[in-house]
Computed example of a mutant assay.
Amino acid sequence: MSEHSDYFGALAEKLRAAGMPRSEVTATVAELTGYLTESGSADPYEEFGAPEDFAARLTGGRAAQEPGAEAETWKWTADIYTDRKHLNHYGDQGWEVQGLDRLGRFVCRRDPAAAMRWEYRRESANNAAERDAVSAGLAPDGWEPCGHWMFFMYFKRPKAASAGPAAELDDLVAPPAKQLFLGTTYRGKLKQMVGAAVVSGTGTAFAIHYGGDPVIYPALIGAAVAAPAAMVLAWHRVKREVAQGVEDA
């Protein structure tokens, strides 16, 4: 994060000024830093825009300035505990997912002249062969792939396939200003993993910098070893919950 510290420092300041709670600011910045690292991008301005504008979008501060129903595109992302809820909620408003970009954001389109309701589902596959098999199994029911991210696969179909005339869309709701949706379950997991990393780094730094009675070394080393292990276990729990379809309450 050091090479982008100026950007994310400014973003954090703008988020706090907009009234976002400090804990939520920390979690949001950590999430965005992770996306930037995975994407390999060296320019957060290119990915997210100016900190003040991005902060306004994340907090809904630009809601009054956002385009209305005539807008045709919208990019957003959510954690794995809330993605299906938001996909189907906004699918009911006519947003069709065209794919996922390199940051894992859903790239959506809505044609005001021919908007329809969409429904979505998520599956998982470890490789291309498994993705092909899953797609083939869902195709007879009208599901078509609309993007994948890591081992997650997303499918869409017009809601008319399951709801008939009730899927007709008469009025369009203006697109939201928000682009990032993080639920309470994910935030809790993120805090656990960040906390484990802090314990590991603090314990190691204390032992190296201050030295002291050798009697305390086993405890410090134990903390340094146990914390990364806790992070690995937390990640495995997340993967298991994803496989089980756990969602935010």
Rank of each mutant, 00 (worst) to 15 (best):
M1D: 14
M1P: 08
S5M: 09
Y7Q: 05
A10V: 01
A10N: 05
A10L: 07
L11C: 05
E13R: 03
E13V: 04
A17G: 09
A17L: 08
A17R: 10
R22T: 11
T26R: 12
A27C: 12
T28K: 06
V29M: 04
T33R: 05
Y35N: 15
L36H: 01
T37P: 03
G40Q: 10
G40K: 07
S41P: 06
S41A: 06
A42S: 00
P44N: 05
Y45H: 00
Y45E: 01
E46I: 02
G49H: 08
A50V: 00
F54L: 01
A55I: 12
G61V: 07
R62P: 03
A63Q: 15
E66A: 10
A69L: 08
E72P: 01
T73Q: 06
W74L: 00
K75S: 03
T77C: 09
D79N: 06
I80V: 11
R84G: 13
K85L: 11
H86R: 11
N88S: 07
D92Y: 14
Q93R: 04
Q98Y: 03
L100C: 08
L100M: 08
G104H: 11
G104V: 09
R105N: 03
R105W: 04
V107T: 14
V107Q: 10
P112L: 02
P112E: 01
M116L: 12
E119R: 04
E123S: 04
E123C: 04
S124F: 03
S124Q: 07
A128T: 01
R131G: 04
G137I: 01
M153L: 00
Y154H: 06
Y154E: 00
F155R: 00
K159V: 09
A160E: 01
A160Q: 02
A163I: 05
A163M: 11
E168W: 07
D171H: 10
D171M: 03
V173C: 06
A174I: 00
P176A: 13
A177H: 05
L180W: 14
G183W: 04
T184A: 09
R187F: 14
G188R: 15
K189S: 13
L190R: 12
Q192K: 03
V194A: 10
G195L: 08
V198I: 07
G203W: 14
T204C: 10
A207G: 03
Y210K: 02
G212T: 00
D213T: 09
V215R: 12
Y217D: 15
A226W: 14
A229I: 08
A230H: 13
M231H: 15
V232D: 11
L233D: 05
W235S: 14
V238R: 04
A243S: 10
G245C: 13
V246D: 14
D248V: 07
A249Q: 13
